[in-house]
Design a protein around this nucleic acid. Structure first.
Length: 885
RNA sequence: AGUCGCGUGGUGUAGUUGGUUAUCACGUCUGCUUUACACGCAGAAGAGCGCGAGUUCGAAUCUCGCCGUGACUACCA
């Protein structure tokens, strides 16, 4: 016997453990079934579950559970990535407490310590995903630093290097002076601030009475200026091109060059060029053969390339001194307020410096070509489609991808340097040594590049490295390409783009997934992005504790409409927790009334119209839910099953079935019991992908002799033939009758307890045929004493209303106030007259009749007719009322 | 600056190819201990879909402009 309320805590862990231990999440590579594969976008090993994860993984789980129940060999490939910088920071912070730095330990010991941290406290997100109910195949869990995945990284690096797609170059990179490593463009966060623009005057060489004024937001970089550029057609400066300026403070002579980069509209039209500290200036420098002077060292203090009195200063201290010195030299022209965006490192939170360094780069532009074509040709489809634009936009403007990082935790670059700087790239040290031997003809000592690869380099391989590549595994053969990648739009560039490039390149042109489903961001109820600094983050685990995982999952699903953000409020979660309780109690009612699923129940063999009706409604619900999930319309799936369960099954079917269920034991009763049990079973199937825990629990409880679990039980496959139009018409009429009587009673303040007679006048065949079979139901649900067809006069003081052709008559002479009733009828008549007018107007429009499709015109005619009948019946009702006065 | 979204009852929203009485939930109001459920039941009020124009027999839905709002990308001398 079920408890009165649903308690998620007691059962969630139980079922999850049973599923996992029973290997019910596992794929079966030997199966005959078609595979259906999703690779999880690997969360950081340092991460913990936030709402974005909760949504992302709920949607993946819905797809996987649905497909699994549909008979596919479902594989949800889980794992985590090693999050190079983040993980290293976590461990270094831990060591800070012991007053240790990684340099104290040395590289090997430090790496050992990171692994220790990982085994003790890493990957807690995977247990949080279990709390959420994610049915990943944990037996296949992978980590980007696993041996197999590391081998994949080495193979890819070597291949790309040999193909000329990875190269070493001295370029400007985004340098994080706190973490002392390069980071990628995507790890740079642009923050808007109101800053200042300083205008400096640079005297012309040989005539210090003439100046060229340039603006800068980073005065300290002027120490590295090697030119000033003006537009070739700028008449203000034309005569100065070719002349030189004397760089103040430094006293370096620098040329004035003509370059189209200088925009006469901006600032003074003259722009200082610092090729070693600005991405645009770097290009100008290349074009004009300018010197590159690096003025910063790796922690953003001034280096020895600046005048002695400024050396060693922090960049911002130096800035102040430069401004002061320029001012005292009389060379500070003016200062303006300047709104601008400043690059910050998303991990370190400090201002990023463009810095000139030797780094490894991937020629992303060449890899992007096929990845763009694949989407253009529809080999990979984005849902919603508009995100393809974002993808194209980025892919078509892609920059060289800097993949080396000056940290220790990660895949060390498989490149060795000979004594003369010659590079040997190989998968193993032995191979590098062998190659060196060949080059030099003797044994030499090689030094390995100390840098590691960007974490995303290994994540990009995830769709095939997790399946065993570079080995030729059956899994790779069977599950690649995968079916769908589910992710938020904020990381289209991180995941989608890079996985596409690498997948196509290394898997013989085959894309990593045929569909990319992009879901929204989870925001708070006011539409604000959740962030720790705003303090508006909602912890999914807390919600699970409070309302259960199913309620949280259902909420996220119901709110996950395509192309719109998810605004989450706790109220909604509470509401869906109530839905869990509703389902629980409906099941409890079924159990109490012997409505148990039976194996030999055949829905097409059912006689009773009520039962045939609910079976038909179940078919409709199943088809709608399946269609919605197939189309990634998750909110639609959730709402459909919600309305069916609560609004139809509970509110109408069970209520209408009560008289039968509480009556004598007969064949109708047993048919009804079996039908109710069957419908409940179908509901559990339909809800299971969204709410796995409560449905599994109920599935087990209402039929404890069942061998299989709901998670792997077959998804319903219901045929259209089960929909019975006659039963639909009857029940539709009965429901409308009851609803209408209830509304009149309520409006006329007839106490709920009072049972009144009901008469029908001018009833059509449908109504006449329904009265008898549904007498018990109508009496019970509308609180009616007796029902009869009225042939003669309407009793004095009756309430009247119209249902189709029939007039509903409720004789309640002693209770009714004629004035109130008259007003009520007036209102209804007015409403109906307005309807009639509307339809009349439409139908008397020649153009409408001739242009609109026939069925639309026909429909309008029918509506007009119905409204007319209602109008006249209501008019008669009013007349009778007034006569009775 | 460019690109892409969004603007529907008090709040949050649905609305697939133009024809619906504009959906649902929360909230509000009224009445109910109806033997599954007050995390419940029954009823009600409340919007004509940001503004303007256009296309059309017909527009919340298509087109254009405007206003507001958000995200992303780029730039910032």
């Amino acid at each position: 016997m079920l408890d009165k309320t649903y308690g998620p805590k007691a059962i969630e862990k139980k079922h999850y453990d049973a599923w996992e231990q029973g290997s019910l999440f596992s794929c079966d590579k030997a199966s005959d079934a078609n595979p259906y594969t999703i690779v999880i976008p690997p969360p950081n090993v340092t991460g913990s579950l936030h709402m974005g994860h909760a949504l992302n993984n709920t949607l993946q789980d819905i797809l996987i559970r649905y497909k699994r129940k549909k008979g596919f060999d479902a594989l949800w490939q889980p794992g985590t990535d090693h999050a190079g910088i983040a993980t290293q920071m976590v461990v270094e912070r831990q060591m800070e407490a012991e007053n240790l730095t990684r340099y104290d330990l040395g590289r090997d010991k430090f790496i050992e310590r990171v692994w220790k941290w990982k085994s003790e406290s890493g990957g807690s997100i995977t247990s949080q995903l279990r709390r959420l109910g994610a049915s990943c195949d944990w037996s296949r869990e992978r980590f980007t630093m696993d041996e197999g995945l590391s081998a994949a990284v080495r193979r890819v690096f070597v291949k790309l290097y040999n193909q000329g797609l990875i190269y070493r170059d001295k370029r400007l990179v985004n340098w994080d002076p706190k973490l002392k490593t390069a980071i990628s463009d995507l790890e740079v966060e642009q923050r808007e601030i109101i800053g200042e623009m300083w205008y400096f005057k640079y005297p012309v060489e040989g005539d210090s009475s003439i100046y060229v004024t340039v603006g800068t937001t980073r005065p300290e970089t002027m120490l590295g200026d090697t030119a000033v550029a003006v537009h070739p057609n700028d008449s203000r400066y034309k005569h100065l091109v070719g002349k030189n300026l004397v760089l103040p403070i430094v006293d370096r002579v620098i040329p004035i060059v003509a370059d189209e980069y200088a925009d006469p509209e901006k600032g003074t039209g003259a722009v200082k060029i610092t090729p070693a500290h600005d991405f645009n200036d770097f290009e100008v420098g290349r074009r004009n053969n300018l010197k590159l002077i690096n003025v910063l060292n790796q922690d953003a203090h001034m280096n020895d390339n600046v005048p002695e009195h400024l050396r060693g200063l922090d960049r911002y201290e130096c800035r102040v001194l430069v401004i002061r010195e320029m001012e005292s030299l009389g060379l500070l022209d003016k200062i303006e307020e300047n709104p601008m965006t400043i690059p910050y490192g998303d991990r370190s939170g400090v201002v990023i410096e463009p810095w000139l360094m030797d780094q490894w780069f991937v020629d992303a532009q060449r890899l992007a070509g096929p990845a763009i074509t694949a989407v253009e040709q529809g080999k990979t489809v984005f849902i919603p489609n508009q995100w393809e634009n974002t993808y194209y936009e980025w892919m078509r403007n892609i920059q060289p991808w800097c993949i080396s990082r000056q940290i220790w935790w990660g895949h060390q670059i498989p490149a060795w340097f000979g004594p003369d700087g010659e590079i040997f790239v190989a998968e193993t040290e032995e191979a590098a040594i062998a190659a060196a031997f060949e080059t030099y003809g003797k044994h030499v000592v090689l030094g390995r590049d100390p840098d590691v690869l960007d974490t995303w380099f290994s994540s990009a391989l995830w769709p095939f490295s997790t399946l065993g590549w570079p080995e030729n595994t059956t899994e790779l053969d069977r599950y690649y390409k995968t079916d769908v990648l589910v992710t938020g739009f904020d990381i289209i560039f991180f995941w989608v783009a890079r996985m596409m490039m690498m997948g196509i390149h290394f898997m013989d042109g085959e894309v990593p997934f045929h569909t990319v489903y992009i879901h929204a961001l989870v925001r708070d109820e006011k539409g604000q992005k959740m962030s720790k600094s705003k303090g508006n983050v909602i912890d999914p685990i807390e919600l699970i504790e409070k309302y259960g995982a199913d309620a949280l999952r259902f909420t996220l699903t119901a709110l996950a409409a395509q192309g719109r953000d998810v605004r989450l409020s706790e109220k909604r979660v509470e509401g869906y927790r109530n839905f869990c309780t509703k389902l629980w109690n409906a099941s409890r009612f079924c159990e109490l009334n012997g409505c148990l699923p039976s194996n030999d129940f055949n829905p097409s063999g059912v006689d009773n119209a009520l039962n045939r009706w609910i079976i038909g409604k179940t078919v409709e619900a199943e088809q709608a839910v399946s269609g919605a999930i197939d189309a990634f319309r998750f909110n639609e799936a959730a709402n459909t099953v919600y309305k069916f369960t609560w609004g139809i099954f509970c509110d109408w079917y069970l209520e209408l079935a009560k008289p039968v269920l509480q009556g004598e034991q007969d064949s109708l009763k047993s048919e009804t019991q079996a039908t109710a049990g069957w419908v409940l079973d179908q509901i559990l199937h339909l809800l299971h992908p969204i709410m796995p825990f409560i449905t599994e629990e109920l599935w087990k409880q209402i039929a404890c002799n069942r061998a299989c679990s709901l998670i792997t039980a077959d998804w319903p496959n219901l045929k259209n033939e089960l929909i019975d139009p006659q039963a639909n018409a009857e029940l539709d009429w009965v429901i409308r009758l009851i609803t209408q009587v209830r509304a009149i009673r309520n409006e006329m303040n007839i106490p709920a307890k009072v049972e009144i007679p009901l008469m029908l006048k001018d009833a059509n065949d449908l109504a006449r045929n329904c009265i008898v079979p549904y007498t018990l139901q109508i009496k019970r649900l509308a609180r009616i004493k007796s029902i009869e067809l009225l042939e003669g006069n309407v009793p004095k003081g009756s309430l009247q209303d119209v249902l189709d052709e029939a007039t509903i008559i409720l004789p309640v002479a002693d209770v009714i106030d004629i004035g109130t009733e008259e007003k009520r009828l007036e209102r209804e008549i007015l409403k109906m007259q307005a309807e009639v007018e509307r339809f009349n107007k439409k139908l008397s429009n020649e153009k409408f009749i001739s242009n609109a499709p026939e069925f639309v015109v026909q429909l309008e005619r029918e509506k007009l007719n119905e409204a007319k009948i209602a109008c006249s019946r209501l008019g008669q009702a009013k007349e009778r009322l007034l006569q009775a006065r």
